[in-house]
Computed example of a mutant assay.
Amino acid sequence: MEKLEKHQEGLKRQREAVKYRLKKLAARQSEITKKSSAIKESIVRKYQEIQAVLDEDLRMTLSHLEMEERAVVSTLDGLMERNCSMIQDIEQDLARLTVALDQTLTPSDSFFSYAEQQDMQTEDRVMDLLSTTDPSSVNLDEAKAEQILSLTSNMLLLIRSQTPIMKKLIKSYSSDVCLDPETAHPKLIISHQGDSATYTNTWQQLPDLPGRFDTTLNVISLQAFSFGRHYWEMDVTGKTYWELGITYPTIPRKGTTEDCWLGRGGDSWCVEFFDGEYTAWHGGVPRQLTFTKRFCRVGVMCSLPAGLVTFLEADKMAPLFSFCAGTFSDCLHLALCPGHDHNGTNANPIVICSALSPTSDL
């Protein structure tokens, strides 16, 4: 009975320890959620402030242009009014002349002299009016407008150079990496530069090294990463099947065990594309993704400080899936599987963009 009671007390202590840990985990979850929300709110405010600055600058710029437009249009209105007034004066002269002609059967010399004098005066007024109301004499300041357009174009180029922000940021994490041919399955051809893996139907006569995959069509990077943030892009253009991911060096390499496949065990994380569908894998658990577009470039980023592995569509840096490992227990290697050629439909290689030569210093 005493032993049973001690065992009971021990179980109670263990239960309390687990309960306390559960409480701490829940608190941490709440803390992470609040912190993430605060970060997102701060970023939204910054974008709103940027938008407000741009809106105010646009308002001021347009107000200047509209004020100048009103001044020019007002000047043209005045000139048009003078021309209209002149037309009215001429019309009145014509009307008076018509009446005079109707009333005078035989015009006198004095009449002709007066008419000629009036005609000369009207011609002088018209010539003066035409010279002072030349449309080409009224202009907008087009040179200044071109300068404004040039400045706004430069601002657009600057903004585009900084956006998308995530693309610029993630690209800054790019790390040199090359594939380790001594880990490659014998049916994979690894380029001399270590930047691509291609399936061949011929079993190559290669040394059966301890680190070589002998069943799954895998290969991992020569470099291992134990700190910092790292990003790589893979070109999968024209492929119908591939697997890309991150793995610990402890991933099983031999035999037919499921753990040898990327993402099927606890040692690796991957996204798989097969038969038009994307699936994220870790610990043997599949997570179906909703994307249907066949991507040409896929990015893989790992953040060791945060314990995150993130997969992205590389052209726009659109996120595909993110795993949280908490804390990585070992260094990490880039891993990939180009798959069988499937009767020529999947013959293209997987190419690592901007890969490092295997002979380079690590």
Rank of each mutant, 00 (worst) to 15 (best):
R45S: 04
R45H: 01
K46T: 08
E49M: 13
E49L: 12
I50P: 01
Q51P: 00
Q51R: 10
A52H: 05
L54A: 12
L54G: 02
D55R: 14
D55E: 15
D55A: 12
E56Y: 05
D57W: 10
D57S: 07
L58T: 06
R59S: 07
R59T: 07
T61I: 10
T61P: 07
L62F: 01
L62P: 00
L62N: 04
H64S: 07
L65S: 02
E66A: 10
E66D: 11
E68K: 03
E69M: 06
V72N: 01
V72Y: 07
V72G: 02
V72T: 06
V73H: 07
S74M: 05
T75C: 02
T75L: 05
L79S: 02
L79I: 09
M80N: 13
M80T: 11
R82Y: 03
R82L: 12
N83R: 09
M86W: 02
I87R: 14
Q88S: 06
Q88L: 02
D89F: 04
D89I: 11
D89R: 14
I90M: 14
I90T: 04
E91H: 12
E91Y: 14
A95E: 14
R96E: 06
L97N: 06
T98K: 06
V99E: 05
V99K: 01
V99M: 04
A100E: 11
A100L: 14
L101R: 05
L101V: 01
L101A: 01
L101H: 02
Q103W: 02
T104G: 00
T104Y: 00
L105V: 12
T106Y: 10
S110A: 05
F111R: 00
F112D: 01
F112K: 04
F112L: 10
S113A: 15
Y114G: 06
A115R: 06
E116N: 13
Q117R: 15
Q118N: 06
D119W: 15
M120D: 12
Q121D: 08
Q121C: 14
T122H: 14
T122C: 04
D124M: 13
V126W: 12
M127K: 15
D128Y: 06
L129E: 01
L130G: 03
L130F: 04
S131N: 12
S131H: 11
T132Q: 12
T133L: 02
T133Q: 01
